[in-house]
Amino acid sequence: MAHFIRSGHGPEDGLLLHCMLANARALDGLTAKLAGDMQMLSMDLPGHGQSEDWDTARDYAEMARDMAVGLLERPAHIVGHSYGGYVALRLAVDHPELVRSLTLIEPVFFAAAKHSDPAAFKTYERSSRAFIGAIAVGDLVSAARAFTADWGDGKPWESMKPDAMDYIIERMPLVAASGASIVKDSGDVFDRLSEIDVPCLLIEGQNSPPVMGAILTALVGQIANTQRVEVEDAGHMAPLTHVPEVAALISAFQEGQPRSSEIS
């Protein structure tokens, strides 16, 4: 069901979860930098890369969570970017026995922003209407343009290669499918965040939309053992555009954790 890539030779186990509309290869730069820290599995989310397509009869977030659970034979350090960060949170609250630590790089858990900064959440809702509305009427090209303008790496849509455009366009319905979990909190995640008792690193880009800061503020308020750091001059795609900086933050965080061999 779940396609994954093995990498690294470090002493710890890690699972990496990419952002919406990408695939596991998007994190190759990061895994190369973290090779000495962890033995990693980088998983393709449902409907991405070479993983199984989304089963429309299932909740998308639950399918992503279950695919990740199926890869974990023992507790691991979970690193998630964007939607992958939300999936990491689902793992932490639904299967805490499988999580050693959390590294969340701009997790798009928009529902959390409602608790810390309702105005920022409403601004996000207004800006998202462009791509959500286009998806609803089947105009996936316009939806893709609008979505990447808000949540891409800053490059113009026209600069992408045709195959990259097609990949994104075909997967825009997955963006709509994710809304129940990340906007409406259908998984009842927020009220369970206080149950997370593993160390958590929150990474944000200095130039990211204000709603991201609101999300991280809400998470800091709910998760006890949390560090929050900012990547200078970075945006939402920091693990792709600022690989050395993000990798250094994760490595430093990992160095502060007890080794698996030290835990009985």
Rank of each mutant, 00 (worst) to 15 (best):
E97N: 03
V211L: 01
G133N: 02
I78W: 00
C200E: 11
E158M: 10
L174P: 03
V220S: 14
M165I: 12
T31M: 01
P118D: 13
Y124N: 11
Q257D: 04
F253C: 00
M38A: 08
D139Q: 01
I203Q: 11
G138T: 00
M212D: 03
A224M: 11
G80M: 02
I196C: 12
P199R: 12
A119D: 12
L249E: 13
L41F: 07
F121D: 01
A32P: 01
S116E: 12
A218K: 05
G85C: 06
L27D: 01
A143L: 08
A136M: 08
D188S: 15
A176L: 12
R126Y: 10
A57G: 14
E62I: 08
L102I: 10
I5A: 15
G205K: 04
E245V: 02
D166A: 15
K155G: 07
V87M: 13
M237N: 13
A57S: 15
L17A: 06
F253P: 02
Q39C: 15
F110A: 07
E158K: 04
V211K: 00
S127M: 14
R25H: 14
R6A: 15
P244Q: 10
D233P: 02
E62T: 12
M67F: 13
A92R: 08
E52K: 11
H77C: 00
P75I: 07
R192E: 05
V231G: 01
P244G: 10
D66K: 06
W54E: 02
A164D: 13
A214W: 00
V211Y: 00
A111C: 09
Q254M: 14
G235L: 00
S51F: 12
L15F: 04
K114T: 07
G179Y: 04
I215F: 01
Q227E: 15
A88K: 00
L240C: 10
G256P: 05
E158L: 07
M160T: 02
Q50H: 15
P199Y: 03
A22V: 09
M165K: 14
I263S: 10
A247H: 06
E158H: 09
A57Y: 02
H48P: 03
D28Y: 07
H236F: 02
A119S: 13
G47V: 01
T103K: 05
M212F: 13
M63H: 09
G70P: 05
E195K: 11
L98I: 04
F4S: 15
I263K: 06
L89K: 09
A92W: 03
A149H: 07
T31G: 05
L72G: 13
E106Q: 13
H236S: 07
G29R: 07
P173E: 06
I168S: 07
F131M: 07
G221C: 11
A234P: 09
M63A: 14
P209K: 13
M237F: 06
A32W: 01
T56N: 07
M1F: 10
S142W: 03
A134I: 01
F190S: 12
M38S: 05
L45H: 10
S178C: 14
I223C: 12
R129D: 06
A143I: 02
R129T: 12
G187V: 11
S181V: 14
S251K: 06
K114Q: 15
L202P: 02
A180Q: 03
Y167C: 06
T241G: 11
M43I: 09
E245P: 01
